Computed example of a mutant assay.
Amino acid sequence: MNDFLNDYNQTVHPSLLKSFIAINNKKLAGYGLDEYCKQAITNIQKRLQSPHADVHFMPGGTITNLTVISHILKPYQAVIAANTGHINVHETGAIEATGHKVISVPTADGKLTPELIEPVLFHHSDEHMVQPKLIYISNTTELGTIYSQQDLKNLYQYCQKNRLFLYLDGARLAMALAAKDNDLTLPDLAKYTDVFYIGGTKVGAFAGEMVIFNNLSINQDFRFSMKQKGAILAKSWIVAVQMNELMQNDLYFQLGQHSNNMADKLKIVFEKAGLTFASKPQTNQLFVNFPNQLAEKIIAHYAVDNLGPIDDHNCCLRFCTSWSTQIDEIDRLDRLLQSWLS
């Protein structure tokens, strides 16, 4: 089966594997207190131009979102997310299971704006409803779109004005920062979010994400929350070693760029076939509108995400390229698609 289902289906990038082999047989301190965690923290603080940023190592995206959000919010407070947001759609009610409501907002492109948030704040005006306190966004979004520097700045300033916190999910941050349209930098993220994370799972890591608190008024006792939620790894160096390697020589950004480049080539294949897109292609996720009969042939030959019908005659399929996608995979799909269309 050919596979465009996701961007974490390849085991591990060779450079990251070598980094583990290089430290084999070493005895290391536990729970993030080892030399590699300290090194990764220093390195990312320099990258962010933020020497006081508070850095933590987490095993995966869902437990990161659950732990960060539940730590920040008081029992009566809620998080606002796009209706397509990962915490609203793909995390099995993890946030709600901690006792916090996810207030979902319909968006055209997966992105939140002050204009979309304003009616929620107006509606939740007193103690008879949950109090919105945290804004959750992801970059890239679940529709593959990205936030510009001005987008993020506007959102952050709105949050500051309305005493809200801004949290950015960076599961696919490498692809966002490597996008052709991108003008955001890592220092911008330190400047215009209260907390965000740098994802490793989707750029060749075995697993692991790195959480960065920029607002040091909300990180107190965070390690207690991590431990309670099962988010502190005894071998936290597993994540740190990979993050060190990904950041060295800009490998992180190169892998994000490769994922995007493969999606660009795939986009040309679909355009040549006369197909349209459900959202603007910007990164490594393509949401393609297919006639049902053609979609059935695709699904029979490829692992893709079937997002369901658009109308009686068409449906939407998601194709996701990765750091390991090769050009011959794109060419093979191109030939197959052309043969079906002819």
Rank of each mutant, 00 (worst) to 15 (best):
K26M: 12
Q77S: 03
T140F: 06
T185S: 12
F206H: 08
I41N: 03
N284Q: 11
R163F: 07
Y8W: 15
L255N: 05
H124Q: 09
P291T: 13
S148V: 08
K265G: 01
I327A: 13
D169P: 08
R318F: 10
Y76L: 09
I63Y: 04
M175V: 02
G60N: 08
P187C: 07
H124A: 04
Q326H: 12
F290L: 09
I198R: 04
F165D: 03
K180D: 07
L152N: 06
D305F: 15
H301Y: 12
F165Y: 14
G110K: 02
K227V: 13
F196S: 04
Y302L: 14
L251F: 00
T185V: 03
W237R: 02
S125K: 15
S217N: 14
H313P: 06
M1P: 07
I44R: 00
H13T: 08
C320N: 11
Q282T: 08
I63E: 00
D312M: 14
Q257F: 05
P119K: 06
Q39E: 10
L341C: 10
Q77G: 08
L186T: 01
Q242A: 05
P187Y: 05
N182A: 11
A300P: 05
H90L: 11
F270E: 01
L251S: 05
L134G: 02
M210T: 00
S324G: 11
E245C: 06
T113C: 10
K161P: 12
K74L: 14
E329F: 07
F290N: 01
A190E: 01
T140G: 02
I69T: 06
N139K: 05
D183T: 03
G60H: 04
I63V: 10
S225W: 06
N9R: 15
L216Q: 08
E118S: 12
Q254Y: 03
I232F: 03
E296L: 14
F270K: 00
W340H: 13
K297G: 11
N25Y: 11
V239N: 00
K153A: 12
P51H: 02
L177F: 03
K153H: 15
S236R: 02
K272Y: 09
K202M: 11
Y167R: 06
Q248W: 04
E245R: 05
S125L: 13
V304M: 12
D250Q: 05
T113N: 09
L134Y: 04
I21C: 11
W340C: 08
A178I: 00
I238F: 07
I72H: 05
V55I: 15
C315P: 07
P281D: 01
S339K: 15
I63S: 01
Q257E: 10
P281M: 03
Q293F: 14
D7G: 13
D264L: 06
R47I: 15
A273S: 08
